[in-house]
Design a protein around this nucleic acid. Structure first.
Lengths: 220, 220
DNA sequence: CATAATATTTAGTTTAATCTAAATAATTGT
DNA sequence: ACAATTATTTAGATTAAACTAAATATTATG
């Protein structure tokens, strides 16, 4: 399994999770910053290896083994991210790039020991769940902040966009995972929100709210 | 800089250190388990990049920047080995392979933080010195055990051969870095040695002794 | 529903890294 | 010193992963 093949599987997995339909070549090309013709080539190869199902002009779907492989790569990526933040004190906006490289290191033993060393973390620094060794991902009942109603309360548990610019924005505005947020008001016009977060009130745009996941608190 | 290029520089550096003459294409091919013709190709490319000096039929020598690059890779390799042993409890015979992959991860910041996390180790688990960030390697006055005279005492500081089979042999025979060894007798016939190591006496072959580095103790 | 727009594939090229086989240079031994 | 051996390079082929441009299929629109 080459780095490139692993990256394709990962991209297809991510695209596939939202709407379990088949994933188009163009979507993959977009996601991976490559050309559709390159995708066609690779997809044929992965199909021959039994990692995905492909019929001309009809997109692709990961097979069982393709899904397992993708999850194994994602597991490595997220565990390495935890390591970088917890042990080497990187900030959460710096780790993605490095983890993109580390996720391709080939050694089951290594990732298992690293996992143990970190105390078997359940989530990466951006709140994304870490798949188990046998490829299970616990799906949580988190919702986007934009879907919460006025007066509802929730704990911020993950970010949807984990680009450095968004993460730095959150740092600058002292919004972190684990913080409790209450929706005070919603603006019809632009979908922006008035929220209460840890003792202070603030106003956030719809754009921000639509990239923050919260887990609702009972009885709010 | 590709993985392959880095591996070539590393191999050439290692070959060059013993006798600072130019390194032959065949020697590189041997070291890297590849064909001489492949080496010729790569050597031309590295030469065009200014990483080494190459004249047809006359072997190669690393340039300044080639040497710096090789040392940077070796530094990464050795720091990762320390991490694997110290933090993840791998044994010293398991780490080379994994470090061969980790040494190619591109991030100055990563290796500096890892170095700090490990307390700025000076040697890897096999006793090899870790080059400094600016490419300096402290050369020590260690000698092979075969070069020590009867009644001399030394501390075992490094291994020459760090193949798993040799390292496992040492483990099995309870010989570790840091142990004090005294030469009790030398056998003329086969060069084998009678040694005293930490409370016990043992007999070791010339083959073993010629792969163990010791640092002599004053007044022995 | 026919055509325009879009998506996808095919064909042919490129680059990096390797290989084999053949050619050529260097070295060794008598 | 010359022939034989060995080392090295050259030439041409291969594989993986890209790309561009052209061809073809699908989808959307008037």
């Amino acid at each position: 399994m080459t780095h490139s093949e692993e990256n394709y599987l990962k991209a297809i997995f991510h695209l596939g999770k939202m709407g379990s339909e088949s994933v188009s070549t163009n979507a993959i090309a977009d996601e991976m910053d490559t050309k559709p013709s390159s995708v066609t080539d690779m997809v044929k190869k992965l199909s021959e290896k039994g990692l995905l199902h492909y019929k001309k002009y009809q997109g692709v779907q990961l097979s069982g083994s393709g899904t397992r492989t993708a999850l194994a790569v994602i597991r490595k990526h997220r565990i390495w991210e935890v390591f970088l933040v917890e042990k080497l004190n990187f900030s959460w906006d710096e780790v993605h790039e490095i983890a993109e490289q580390l996720e391709h290191i080939k050694s089951e033993e290594l990732i298992d020991r690293l996992d143990a060393h970190l105390g078997f973390p359940k989530h990466d620094p951006h709140g994304d769940p870490i798949p188990s060794r046998d490829g299970k991902v616990k799906l949580s009942d988190k919702r986007l902040l934009t879907e919460a109603a006025i007066n509802e309360r929730g704990i911020c548990v993950a970010v949807k966009d984990s680009s450095p610019s968004f993460l730095k924005f959150l740092d600058k505005n002292k919004i972190a995972l684990g913080d409790q947020i209450t929706i005070l008001d919603k603006e019809e016009f632009d979908g922006s929100l008035e929220i209460q977060i840890k003792q202070r009130k603030m106003h956030i745009s719809n754009e921000i709210a639509s990239n923050l996941y919260v887990k609702m608190v009972e009885g709010s």
